[in-house]
């Protein structure tokens, strides 16, 4: 099987380039893209990429495969079309080396939405209770693993990575806005009520197309937008 991998070493290379590799894979067998990358690293020890849990939970091996962002560890080679598999770093973030990108801008946006439960009521003796119905509202939101596949597929995030929160951050923002135990709903909405933070979303839906966990940031953004609208009426 043929691979074309994005290579860039800041110490020696002026510009990134694509390098071709060949990997023998037994016919009838399959493996995840991450396994293939590890085997290629055995051929060429210079190839750099991030990986940790290797089962789609940690979110560290987000890469761009054949033009589409995905987690290498849960992408079977058999699911990829074409003779040659092209692997690039996630688009839009500064490349540190090969497939490793600088996630600072992405995390800064996450930080802005205050990704933790805030409850200013009197502290209960045990825990904050929640009805099963209220708990259900968090489904499809809490599963986000911050792999950045969605935000780096989003043109609005490419052009304004410093001002637009991005699909991942906004999905997380909604996760706390809708949480019945959180008392800062109003100030959370205030934080997003400007021209850039949320309203740069143009409904392109690239985020939904790529999310490896099957989540829907576009819908979460729509819900926040409706809440902002209802508040203004």
């Amino acid at each position: 099987m043929q691979f074309s991998i994005y290579r860039y070493d800041p110490d020696t290379d002026k510009k990134p380039y694509m390098k071709d590799y060949e990997l023998e894979i037994e016919t009838g067998s399959d493996m995840m893209l991450l396994d293939a990358l590890i085997l290629l690293k055995a051929q060429d020890a210079g190839i750099s990429f991030r990986r940790s849990c290797r089962e789609g939970v940690c979110g560290s091996d987000g890469v761009n495969v054949n033009g589409k962002n995905a987690l290498a560890c849960i992408t079977p080679l058999s699911s990829l079309k074409g003779k040659k598999i092209t692997v690039r770093p996630l688009p839009g973030l500064p490349v540190i080396r090969d497939l490793v990108v600088d996630m600072t801008q992405f995390y800064r946006q996450y930080e802005k939405i205050r990704p933790y439960l805030i409850n200013n009521d009197e502290q209960p003796v045990r825990e904050h209770l929640q009805t099963p119905q209220d708990r259900e509202k968090l489904d499809g939101l809490y599963e986000c693993i911050l792999c950045a596949c969605c935000s780096t597929a989003c043109p609005s995030f490419w052009w304004n990575p410093d001002k637009f929160i991005g699909p991942s951050g906004l999905l997380q923002a909604y996760r706390f806005i809708i949480d019945s135990r959180d008392t800062e709903t109003e100030s959370r909405l205030d934080d997003l009520d400007d021209a850039y933070s949320l309203f740069r979303c143009r409904g392109i839906m690239n985020c939904v197309s790529v999310c490896p966990k099957g989540l829907n940031p576009t819908q979460a953004i729509g819900h926040i937008r409706s809440m902002l609208l209802n508040r203004g009426l």
């Binding site: 860039y8 800041p10 110490d11 290379d13 002026k14 510009k15 990134p16 770093p89 688009p91 839009g92 973030l93 500064p94 490349v95 540190i96 990108v101 600088d102 043109p155 490419w158």
Partner: peptide, 10 residues
């Protein structure tokens, strides 16, 4: 070392 990191989308 090259300080201008590539990666911006064009």
């Amino acid at each position: 070392m090259n300080k201008n990191r590539p990666g911006s989308v064009n």
